[in-house]
Write a protein that binds this DNA or RNA. Sequence first.
DNA 1: GAACTCGTTGGTACTCAGTATCGTACTAGC
DNA 2: GCTAGTACGATACTGAGTACCAACGAGTTC
Lengths: 221, 221
Amino acid sequence: MPTTSRERLVAAAFELFAGQGYDATTVDEIATRAGTGRSTFFRHFPTKDDVVLPDHEALLRRVDERLATASSAGLEVALREAAGIVLEHYLAEGETARTRYRLASSVPAIRDREVASVQRYVRLFGKHVHRWLDTEPDGPLRAELVASAIVIGHNHVLRQWLRGAVDDADTTRTLVDRALDHALAVLRGPAAAGAPTIVITGGERDVEQVVQQVRAALGRP
Amino acid sequence: MPTTSRERLVAAAFELFAGQGYDATTVDEIATRAGTGRSTFFRHFPTKDDVVLPDHEALLRRVDERLATASSAGLEVALREAAGIVLEHYLAEGETARTRYRLASSVPAIRDREVASVQRYVRLFGKHVHRWLDTEPDGPLRAELVASAIVIGHNHVLRQWLRGAVDDADTTRTLVDRALDHALAVLRGPAAAGAPTIVITGGERDVEQVVQQVRAALGRP
DNA sequence: GAACTCGTTGGTACTCAGTATCGTACTAGC
DNA sequence: GCTAGTACGATACTGAGTACCAACGAGTTC
């Protein structure tokens, strides 16, 4: 079983971090346990954190590619699928992702790195959403809101899966879809200048019922 | 003018960072320029970054206090005022805040710290919004969305002021108010289970016009 | 005024992350 | 068999952050 030194380093790091904690573990120990030199560690990972962090670069690239090909009509689908790419990556990682999550929950250094990564996804989504909103009033702000809403919706459900509160992959996918309904409502509901914008989410969409609700909501029938 | 050593350290750090860059400046240099010892630096600031970062602790505490006293009816007002507390802090800081912004824009280490700080505000807002949404469906997710939307709206305008794109304080306040309209729309638009929830933002709220819009939107008149 | 706190400071020594560099072993291709 | 490229190990260095101790000055008490 001659795994690569990179893989051995990752395995050793996960074991040591779990066993004696992140701060109490030195890069020297990780390298020694992996049967390699300290130089090799830093040749594979720029910092100590990176050995347990996922490869966001590749993931961001794939998300970027999916969003870049989105047409105006297919924007929502593209956003959902882009979020799906990330979700599927984590689901495929399985237990590794969950171990990392527990680590990030207890080690501030790793948590901060993760937060910074999340920000990169928000910026990426924002870049593309902005392309579709740039003619609209408050386009840049709304693009940022939508992008962040999508990432939050996705991560909200992802965390449930990482914690083990949800275990089934299909259930997780369904929940993400529902969470993205909320997120995309932000996209559909611009604050128009002339005619008001109306967002209807959830429930049965019986016209007369909705109309009645509108009359009631506006207060003066 | 015997300023405290803490103040001298902050001043020295800003000067050196601006002059020769963040990475090229050592804590030793900062301490020497401030006419103090290296020990004194770390006695005042836990890390090198912290010397130029704002005192988020105090700010978070004040925001927390404002939100804690919010009644159900005054929730939106409380959220706006809480955001206002942060805005006023930056406006009062003036040029210092702008210098820090330029620093954070160019130094990844500082930018990451700022991103982590922003996350703390989101969590704080989320904690309080959650109290008001916990009976509603998808309360935790919606609370997170609203909290993040408020912080994004606030920061979106704040950044314009920091960059100097907006210079007048009153204009900035007005823009934040408008940005928070978008953010709070997320709060008002829950995805109800039975009856749909309807969010109407912007424009004239003439009932018949809205009803007509609803009929058109739902497609089957 | 001497002794006694107590908070602020400076100095020294240490650990460890991260960088730079050099020599070496292994492999591929000609 | 030779060479170019690549992965590796070892060493030495910088600088952030920690731990500890000794000194100084301003009260305070006897």
